[in-house]
Amino acid sequence: MYEFNYRRASSVSDAVASSGQSDDASYLAGGMTLIPVLKFRLASPSDIIDLAGLGELKGIRTENGAVVVGAMTTHAEVAGSSEVRQPIPALADLAESIGDPQVRNRGTIGGSIANADPAADYPAAVVGLGATVHTNSRTIGADDFFTDMFETALEPGELVTAVSFPVPDRAAYMKFPNPASRYAIVGVMVSQSGEEVRVAVTGAGGSVFRVPEMEQALAVNFAPEAVAGISVSADGLNEDIHASPEYRAHLVTVMARRAVAAAG
């Protein structure tokens, strides 16, 4: 790791101001991605601004019928929260499927979505449940937040403060995990809220994406058979030692079918 200046922010505005004053600052949340990145010297920020002291970014509350999760809320807290599990079991299950207990004890929802790893789980929840991302300066709709591999709509220095999830009528998340890390080789979140159906896929492409053909079919008939015959093209999907683009395309249909079955 290269040397950097470390400081703990005392408030959201202090964090944003410190970031603005630095040439190259990075926010630190759980550190489960950033610290490995620093160790590999893939990044060399001059300043690290730790968000750990910001109580205003922590915790889960219900507001206007939506479940609002503070950016610094850990995966373990989301998984263990009855305020999440009771209205949106799919979201609690997703958080519980991330990495291992120690990663879940430290890693946060804000860090996960800001990082926008193509194999991360939370992007499927944000897009698949039609969530809204709150930042220090604005709100960003789920469909506009993830723009590319490791890229989001966040401006430099913009800080995620919370994510609000509307409560769906039903939803489920199914993932085919990498057996070592538990990152998604393919993960699919399916939800239905009244007339609206969302099918969001993570792990398969450079960034999370929706499958409109499956959404339309499910809007007519919310049953596993409705998506069993629908596949996505393998063109442009991710390729690595774990899975070929064709295999990932195949998994999208399988995981979508299982998610619909689980959503009941």
Binding site: Y6, R8, L28, G31, M32, I35, P36, I48, D50, A52, Q102, V103, N105, R106
Partner: peptide
């Protein structure tokens, strides 16, 4: 926690 992935400062 994994102490190789926590800064002493944290």
């Amino acid at each position: 926690v994994k102490s190789c992935t926590v800064l002493a400062a944290q």
